[in-house]
């Protein structure tokens, strides 16, 4: 799957409080969460972001609280992928579980500036900076995570697993 969009670049340690401030956590509606995405660090993000755009962050992206509202807000805002030098652990997990594509690639982060056009091939894990004319390769996903992503997320993965367990139990009887 290929996506193409503009870069929104931020620094290191982008925490979940700036991705979606706690004052908006009294909602679980993706569209409403998206309407406040990044507002404490970049007031213009919501009005400027277009489907297919890419958030580029430094190290420890998504640190802080476990709120899944953060990757949900990013995904619902139309962002196709987050590229960072490294991700905070829970954010990484949440993104995989809800099917928000994320790629770890410090080199692509170093080369990117806000506004750059990025073309990303998620299955190959490649990032092309069209504006700068440079290509990068991200860390591949471990196989186990691929199977969660291929299923469409952890919910779908769990559903099919529990269903096949149930079926197996029935045949055993």
């Amino acid at each position: 799957m290929k996506t193409r969009g503009k870069t929104f670049k931020y620094g290191d340690n982008i925490d979940t409080d700036v991705i979606i401030p706690a004052r908006h956590l009294n909602s679980i509606d993706p569209a409403e969460l998206a309407s406040h995405c990044m507002e404490d660090i970049d007031k213009d993000f919501v009005s400027k972001v277009r489907k297919g755009d890419v958030i580029v962050g430094g190290s420890n992206f998504g640190c802080g609280s476990s709120r899944e509202h953060a990757p949900i807000a990013i995904k619902a805002s139309g962002v196709a992928c987050v590229v960072a030098s490294s991700f905070a652990r829970i954010f990484y997990r949440n993104a995989i579980n809800i099917g928000l594509p994320i790629l770890e690639c410090p080199e692509a982060v170093a080369a990117a500036s806000s506004g750059d056009e990025l073309e990303i091939d998620l299955s190959a894990g490649t990032i092309r900076n069209v504006t700068k004319g440079a290509d990068f390769k991200a860390q591949p996903y471990p196989e186990f995570m691929r199977s969660i992503m291929d299923a469409g997320g952890l919910i779908e993965y769990t559903r099919s697993r529990l269903a096949s367990k149930g079926a197996a139990a029935k045949t055993a009887r």
């Binding site: 949440n94 952890l154 919910i155």
Partner: peptide, 30 residues
């Protein structure tokens, strides 16, 4: 726990860690 400070219970010699809501949902089922 679907809260990042779930790591608190390490004080009791347990392994505890924060996850997201989807993890919590799957865990409640499985």
């Amino acid at each position: 726990g679907a809260d990042s400070h779930t790591c608190t219970y390490g004080a009791a010699g347990a392994f505890s860690t924060g996850v997201g809501s989807t993890d919590m949902a799957a865990a409640m089922a499985s």
